[in-house]
Amino acid sequence: MSKNDNSIYNRALLFSIVAAVTVLIGTIATVFVPMFTEGMHPKVDGLKPYTALELAGRDVYQAEGCVNCHSQVIRPLKADVLRYGQYSKAGEYAYDRPFLWGSKRTGPDLARIGGKYPDEWHIQHFESPQAFYPKSNMPPYPWFKEKQVNVKETLARMDALSFPYTEEEAAELEGATELDAMIAYMQVLGTSIAKEALIEIDESMIEAESPVKGDADAIALGKKLYKAECSGCHGQIAEGNIGASLVDYAEFEPLDTDTYITIANGFEGAMPGYAAKFSKEKIWAIVEYINSLK
C-alpha cells in the first residue's frame, strides 16, 4: 500500500475532487460543449411545433411506453430506407422534448408513419392489431377511444413548451379522445420534409401484361402475400374494409399494369406502396391473385 502519507489514497477530499474532475472531462467535451454549438440545434424549414391535439397524442405515446418497442429514427442504411423511407434528419426533431428515437424495434420504426395509412387504419389497428396481422404481438389499446383528453392539462403543457395555439385549436380539444390525439400525432410524424418515393414505378419499367397470367403457383403466392399484408384493409376475402373491395375491382377487368402500379406506388395518405418491399415477382403474383377474384 502507499507509504506516502500525502498520497491521494490517504486524502479523501482531494481524492473526491480529482475523481469529480476526471468524470467531468468527457462530460464537458462530448455533452456540455456540443450543447452550445449550432450543429446541435438544427431545424428543417417545414417543421412546425406540435398542435395541442398532436401534443396530447405524443403524451399518450410517452405514457404508454410506446418507445419500448418503436423507434423513431431511420438510419442512412439501405434496408432502413427501403423499409421506412428517407433517413432521418437532425432538423426534424427540434421540438421533440424528449427525443423519442428509442432503442428497440419489437415493432416497426415510426419516424415516417405520418400519411402512410388513413386514419381509419389507426382506429382499427389500435383496437386490435391482430385484426391486421394475426401474429402481431402488439397489445391492443381499446381504452384509447374511451378516454377523453384533459383540455386544461394539455393547454398547460402547451404553455410550458411555449407552443402557440389559437382559441379554435383549444376548442377542438373538447370532446377529443386519446384515440383522436394518437392519430393526430401518428399522422404528423415525419411529415416536416417533403415525401419522396424511393422507387416510383411507371409503365416503362414493367411488362405490358402480367408475365404469370393465370399461373396457379403465382395465384397461390399472391394469395399468401395478400393474406399477410393486404387483408387488414381489403378484407379477408377481399370484400373491402378500409380499402376497396377487390372482388368488385376485379369485376371491372382492370389492366394488369394499372393494378401493378397501384400496389407498387400506393396512394399518399390512403395506401402504402410496396415497390421497395416486394420484388416484381411478388407484385405480379398479387396482381394475379386479384385477377383470380373475378
Partner: peptide, 24 residues
C-alpha cells in the same frame, strides 16, 4: 426538465441534444 404540471414535465434538452444528454 420544464415542469408543466405536477405529473408531467418536458426534457430541458430538445431533439439531437436531448438524445446526446440522455445516452450520456
Amino acid at each position: 426538465a420544464i415542469p408543466a404540471t405536477l405529473t408531467k414535465s418536458y426534457h430541458l434538452f430538445a431533439g439531437v441534444n436531448s438524445a446526446n444528454v440522455e445516452w450520456w
